[in-house]
Design a protein around this nucleic acid. Structure first.
Length: 885
RNA sequence: GGGUCAAUAGCUCAGCUGGUCAGAGCGCCACGUUUACACCGUGGAUGUCGGGGGUUCGAGUCCCUCUUGACCCACCA
């Protein structure tokens, strides 16, 4: 038996009372057993549709936004599968990085202390904690290896529960190709890519001031920073001139605590007020350090006092001035965010005394203390002027970022190469090569690339991640020689330089003069997740597979990570493969609260995805996602899910009814669900003609990856199909118009239903599969996408307009009874239907079906008028009410 | 300051290249229990398409401008 042959005794397989309940579990199991969504490796690239799916952050909570975006991508994927593509649709887990570390700390009540030794059979102090503010002091310090083991343990649990949600949602993911961004293969891939970048000069180290999170004690890349409004105040503070005049120069600063880090004052070279000062020196208050007054065009005359103090480092301008004016470095803030113990450039005893008070204080406390000091000394003029201003934060951090000078690894990303035809241009061109859905999202990408101010800082001073796979040689004095980078052989990857040993050395030489030392850092989590096409596609482990799936066809993702994930993926593919990572990207919007604000975390946690899937059915939730267009932020609307649920139920019920009329003769050509030659009634043919148009529109929409447009045409057709067409042919299908009429109705119903199930299959995955199983073999999800040509042939030249005309007449006839407030079962003894001349033929052609629908005993059809109307109505007696049951 | 998107019925949104485009669903009102469906069906009402200009025979649809909202980037002494 082939997939398209009807099953014998089909009607007997129809349930009495179809229901959505339990369909998710039932079909997930069947699909899994039959491996319906498995990728067939025996293939060629042109047959494949490959998807670079977002690996969810395992330690984050799965919220409704995930369900939204993944559903939309799944609709596109399912269409491609039905178009005969061999779909490569893996789903990985992003489980390395800070979110996991944080969750592990809170969940187990531990923190990583790399100096501790590994403890076998370690039992964490607690399990299941989620206190977000749990203090480090209450956490048990454990070794890096113990910590990583706990990370792996917890992510496994999280990933299993995520998979459960995605399966319930009906994602047609091939779970055989799952990966974790922290697994050995991912580490090897990430390290290999990094080493190749190093070899090609695309990865380099540099000692420079970088944005630093004092809580996590790690450097932070540009893409991970965000502005937050914070209260601050301008403090007007005087610097004494050194010309003996006793005059003061006043600056305004929001960071008075950085006074001891002051290295110069700066004003705009054209600012007339300060012309005389350029080239002279002034003395800093409190600390008595002599600093030069300099000119630089970056200084703005209309900002603050027009003259600024340059500190190492308060903000990005300080870094620029420090670099371009070749100023000394006087750092006061340490990696822990506290004032460093010493400031040797302060020479006066009084200054040293004051600095000693600041040493060890946090930035916050130091500022308070410095303000007190300048108030006492009289260097502060007037009251500080309160302002709110944007301050840079790490997106996961709670404390403002500080500048700390450190040695870090960078990857070229065009941020420092804006030359014509340079890397930045090349990456912008890559963006233009991609087809964006929706198209305008490309400008966000371009905007970001054009605004880059530096290369990609990829090293992180954290523990749970992919280690930077290098060592450094130590010289005879035991000092690190950063110029002698020792790299592992590719075959050894993945490695951990803190436990593995570079070739030519022995473990005993670790940290010894003349020996080696490990780079203690890990790679930025994006440095690994930017390689998802390579990870999932097997660049490192399975080149044969890689050739069949890369570059991928589709990258679905949210617009909030265009600047991170999307951009970094393009960077890596460009550097690694000199290629695009994928040819299409589908950008989904955000979920908004009903009040149009971005869905809040708290709310997202209350409304859990699995709860929604249970209460509205996965088909209902998918419908809500399917109604929303790509890129458009969408209101969280359970009303839409209810409508989706209703649609799914309607599909079950209407199908049961349509199939209950009995078998139609099979199509000898096998293209349709019944013999098109049996479709002889005008109304049936017009319905199929109309359906052919729907197929064309839906197909064109899906070809553009526009699932929403496709659903938008299929759904209304289906409702009129149920409400009008089925109602019109009911009696005929039961035999009221003879054998030919019966055969025509049954054949048309079977043909239409089968096509409709396939049209709905990408969105309403469970209900369509359920119905399919009642009368067909195999899975609806591996059927061919319907074509319009056979439908049009079956319509035998009948125009879809006939259906529209008859539907309008049906509405007019029903209105008679609705207005008379009687049951639709009430007979119409006689009626005259008038219609525009060209519509008369349509009505005559469907006369039998119309009289059956209206229970009309005498129907007169006349031409005339602009619209369809009725006259000379005579209603019969309403039927006697029968008790239900 | 630069960029992007949006503004259409009480609500959520369609309306694709200018000519049945003034629509759908929800909600609302009225009616009906018709052996597929009460997790139902039938019928109905509802809009200066954000404001103002312009192009055109004709504009939610194209152009300009203003207003409002959302987001991204830049600035942030």
């Amino acid at each position: 038996m082939t997939d398209t042959a009807p099953r014998p005794n089909a009607a007997s397989a129809l349930p009495d009372k179809p229901t959505l309940e339990g369909l998710e579990d039932k079909w997930d199991r069947v699909w899994d057993e039959a491996q319906v969504y498995a990728f067939d490796a025996d293939t060629t690239r042109d047959q494949v549709f490959s998807v670079d799916t977002p690996p969810p952050t395992a330690s984050g909570s799965l919220h409704i936004g995930h369900v939204f975006g993944y559903s939309q991508a799944d609709m596109i994927v399912r269409y491609q599968r039905m178009r005969g593509k061999n779909v490569f649709y893996p789903l990985g887990w992003d489980d390395n990085g800070l979110p996991t570390e944080r969750r592990v700390q809170n969940y187990f009540g531990v923190r990583c202390d790399p100096s501790l030794p590994y403890e076998e059979d370690f039992t964490p102090p607690q399990e299941g904690g989620d206190n977000k503010s749990s203090k480090a002091a209450n956490q048990t310090p454990i070794s890096r290896r113990n910590f990583i083991e706990l990370c792996e343990k917890l992510t496994k649990v999280d990933e299993a529960s995520f998979e459960e949600v995605f399966r319930t949602l009906g994602l047609s993911v091939d779970w055989n190709h799952s990966y974790q961004t922290i697994d050995a293969r991912s580490r090897a891939t990430s390290q290999r890519a990094f080493l190749e970048n190093l070899e090609k000069g695309q990865a380099y180290q540099s000692e420079a001031p970088t944005m630093w999170d004092v809580t996590y004690r790690t450097a932070v890349a540009q893409a991970e920073q965000e502005d937050r409004e914070r209260d601050g105040a301008y403090h007007r503070i005087g610097f004494a001139k050194t010309d003996g005049s006793g005059e003061k120069v006043f600056i305004e600063t929001t960071r008075p605590e950085l006074l001891p880090a002051c290295v110069a004052l700066v004003a705009h070279p054209d600012d007339e007020r300060y012309q005389d000062l350029f080239g002279t020196t002034v003395t800093s208050p409190l600390f008595g350090v002599e600093v030069p007054v300099m000119a630089h065009p970056l200084a703005q005359a209309d900002k603050g006092a027009g003259i600024a103090m340059i500190c190492t480092f308060g903000d990005a301008n300080d870094v620029t001035w420090w670099r371009e004016l070749e100023l000394p470095t006087r750092s006061v803030i340490g990696r822990d965010g506290r004032f460093l113990p010493e400031a040797p450039w302060i020479t006066s005893a009084e200054g040293q005394e004051r600095y000693a008070e600041l040493a060890g204080l946090t930035v916050f406390s130091a500022q308070k203390r410095v303000v007190e000091m300048v108030t006492e000394s009289g260097d502060l003029v007037g009251e500080p002027k309160k302002i709110t201003h944007p301050v840079k934060f790490y997106e996961n951090g709670d404390k403002a970022l500080e500048y700390v000078t450190s040695r870090q690894w960078y990857l070229t990303n065009g941020g420092r190469d804006s030359s014509e035809g340079g890397l930045r241009d090349a990456l912008i061109a890559r963006g233009a090569e991609i087809t964006w859905h929706p198209a305008y999202m490309e400008s966000r990408y371009r905007n970001w690339v054009e605004g880059l101010v530096g290369d990609w800082l990829v090293s992180r001073q954290r523990f749970y991640g992919v280690p930077i796979p290098v060592w450094y040689a130590l010289d005879a004095a035991g000092e690190v020689d950063y110029d002698t980078v020792l790299t592992p052989e590719v075959e050894r990857l993945p490695i951990d330089p803190t436990t593995d040993v570079p070739a030519g050395y022995e473990e005993a030489q670790r940290e010894q003069p003349g020996g080696f030392t490990a780079d203690p850092d890990i790679l930025d989590t994006w440095a690994t997740s930017s390689l998802t096409p390579q990870l999932a596609g097997g660049w490192d482990a399975d080149p044969e597979l890689f050739a069949k799936v890369y570059p991928m066809d589709l990258r679905p993702q949210g617009h909030d990570i265009i600047r991170t994930w999307l951009f970094s993926t393009i960077v890596r593919s460009h550097l690694q493969q000199d290629s695009l990572p994928w040819t299409n990207t589908s950008i989904n919007g955000w979920i908004l609260d009903p009040d149009r604000k971005k869905m809040s975390k708290s709310k997202g946690n209350v409304v859990t995805p699995i709860g929604l899937l249970h209460s509205h059915g996965s088909d209902g939730v998918r419908y809500w996602a399917g109604r929303a267009r790509q890129g458009v932020d969408t209101a969280f609307d359970e009303g839409q899910m209810k409508i989706g649920r209703r649609l799914a139920i309607k599909i079950l019920n209407a199908s049961k009814f349509a199939l209950g009329f009995g078998e139609a003769p099979a199509d000898p050509s096998g293209r349709l669900a019944a013999d098109p030659a049996a479709v002889t009634a005008s109304l049936d043919r017009a319905m199929l003609a109309s359906l052919a148009g729907v197929v064309d529109t839906a197909t064109a929409a899906f070809e553009e990856m526009d699932y929403a447009r496709a659903l938008e045409v299929v759904e209304p057709f289906f409702w009129t199909f149920c409400d009008d067409y089925i109602e019109l042919i009911k009696d005929r299908a039961h035999g009221s118009a003879g054998e030919q009429g019966v055969a025509s109705a049954r054949a048309a119903l079977a043909i239409a239903l089968e096509v409709l199930l396939r049209l709905f299959a990408p969105v309403v995955v469970f209900a369509t599969e359920e119905v399919w199983s009642w009368w067909r073999e195999g899975s609806v999800h591996t059927q061919a996408w319907p074509e319009s040509a056979p439908l049009r042939e079956a319509a035998a030249g009948r125009d879809a307009a006939l259906l529209t005309t008859v539907e309008q007449a049906a509405i007019v006839l029903r209105r008679i009874k609705s207005d008379a407030k009687v049951s639709q079962k009430t007979p119409i003894l006689q009626v005259t239907v008038s219609a525009p001349a060209q519509a008369v033929e349509h009505l005559e052609a469907a006369r039998g079906d119309l009289t059956a629908l209206g229970r009309i005993e005498s129907l007169t059809i006349t031409g005339g008028g602009e619209e369809i109307d009725t006259a000379d109505v005579e209603l019969g007696e309403p039927p006697v009410k029968k008790p239900r049951g």
